[in-house]
Amino acid sequence: MMMQTVQSPVVRILDVHKSFGSNEVLKGIDIEVTAGEVVTILGPSGSGKSTLLRCINMLEEIDSGAVFVDGEQMGFDLRDGRLHRLPDSVVRRQRRKIGMVFQHFALYPHMTALENVLEAPVGIHGRNRKEAREEALALLARIGLADKANFYPRQLSGGQQQRVAIARALAIRPRLILFDEPTSALDPELVGEVLETMRGLADEGLTMIVVTHEISFAREAADRVIFMDGGVVVEEGPPDRVLNDPRNPRTRQFLNRVI
């Protein structure tokens, strides 16, 4: 376990609201995530948890409130008492600190596993190709796929694809990784290997926000569990407390259904 000396918040979400048309999906969310913390967001479908995750790296634009990553407000800049929208180029720079793992992997199908991992560090962050390549091969070895470096995504199993996607997110040396239901699209027997990889990252002190239905991951790897329902945070706390002794009736009802 890496020691975190300064417990500064990596993510600060302040009173975030988001609607799709007349449907308000997020109704005032406040969350803080400190460096090295692993936060799991649980909740029934439609509770707004994926939308919240996508608001952090601005894949969705929020209607009101504010999101800070690493002390910088995402997408906006306060100058002389006025809030200015940042140009796209600066937003892109802000996003480059954040890794993301998608439900349906979203690997680039026309690139091999190695090329997938290399694309962002070399093409976007402008790192030296030779060094990045060695680092990428080391990452693939770490997730147990060193021998699959030259395989195309289509030739890998779902679990292997998702592990490559995790390596791709790690390759940018992120301050934070967002996981959007990383095991929901997998066959049951492939879920284990992906959770195993994620547990390894959690142990190394990476800051992670994980939207998932895997109660076991929340129990074993998370520092904190946030339960969302109907666009609000219903309950949060350490996994032992929230999962074993839920105080809110809606949390209790949800846990009864999934366990």
């Binding site: 894949l59 180029s89 892109r92 802000q94 480059r96 998608f102 694309e119 962002a120 093409g123």
Partner: peptide, 15 residues
């Protein structure tokens, strides 16, 4: 999802 993945990694539209 391919567009989103490239956006999330901070890739420019042209790239």
């Amino acid at each position: 999802g391919q567009v989103e993945a490239s956006q999330a990694f901070g890739m420019s539209r042209g790239r």
